[in-house]
Computed example of a mutant assay.
Amino acid sequence: MKRKYDKYWGNPESLNMLLLIAVVLNPQYKLIFVNWQISQVFNYDVAIQLKGKLESCLKSLFEEYRHEMGEGLQGESQSSSYSRCNNDRYRYHQFLQSSGPNKSELSKYLEESLEGEDLNIRIWSNLNSSRFSILGKIVRDVLAIPLTIVASELAFSTGGRVFDPYRSSLTPRMVEALICTQDWLKETHLSMLPNEDFEELEKFEQDKINQV
């Protein structure tokens, strides 16, 4: 477990930024919580470097999505701006444009207060999809990435290597016996059986199951 942790989290230089960005996109945590956690785990110099890298990657990802979505909405924005100019009562929209550049979705999202612990993220995303359309697209893409891989299953779960789909009809007693036998073999440093012996054992086991 320590080797797996060092592989994915021990070296800040090789740390996958999408893992941290996924936490930032949670309105319960955002960037302020992730930065605090980084300060707790790493020393000062490494924490400063990792925080800067995270913010840079987050802004770059947001700008890339905004550029892609902006090209598709360019014609729509031009027509909507034209209608606003014609219906600009008291020149209100002209005042907004002259008052300075508007903040981006990312800045607005990060500046808002954190949500409560009992938040339903799916409902929150649906309610705020009109305000954060670009961030919503990023959330759907980033959170769709599966976080579990075969390596973690092999490291943390023994049952997954014994109770597989091909052995789904094993009784609990047989599963316990297989797991215990594997532990005993490791303790006594005995070599595992060759592949052809395993095939014979599986055939014998299947015949027993069919008889039952």
Rank of each mutant, 00 (worst) to 15 (best):
I145L: 12
L178D: 06
C85E: 13
A177P: 01
N102M: 09
E111N: 12
I138T: 04
Y90Q: 12
V150K: 05
N128D: 07
G72I: 03
V175G: 03
G100V: 09
D183V: 06
L185N: 08
I145S: 04
T188M: 11
L114E: 06
W184P: 00
I121M: 06
Y92R: 15
Y82G: 00
L147G: 12
N126Y: 08
L147K: 05
L127T: 09
A177C: 13
A177G: 12
R122S: 11
R140T: 15
R91L: 10
G72T: 03
A155W: 08
Y90S: 13
F132S: 01
E105T: 07
P146V: 12
G160V: 07
K137H: 14
L143A: 03
S130W: 01
E76H: 10
S99G: 14
V162P: 01
E117P: 02
P165M: 02
N102K: 11
L110G: 02
R140P: 02
G159I: 05
A155C: 05
D164R: 04
D88I: 11
P172A: 14
L96K: 15
L143I: 04
I138R: 03
E115K: 13
H93Q: 15
D118F: 01
R91S: 12
G160P: 00
K137C: 04
A151F: 06
S152H: 06
L96H: 13
P165I: 00
N126S: 10
R173K: 13
A155G: 01
S129W: 00
G160C: 08
L96A: 14
S152C: 08
S98Y: 14
E112M: 10
E111Y: 04
A151Q: 13
T181R: 14
K137D: 09
F95I: 15
S107Q: 12
V139Y: 07
S98L: 14
H93M: 15
P165H: 07
F95E: 15
Y109F: 13
N102H: 07
G160A: 11
L170V: 06
E105V: 07
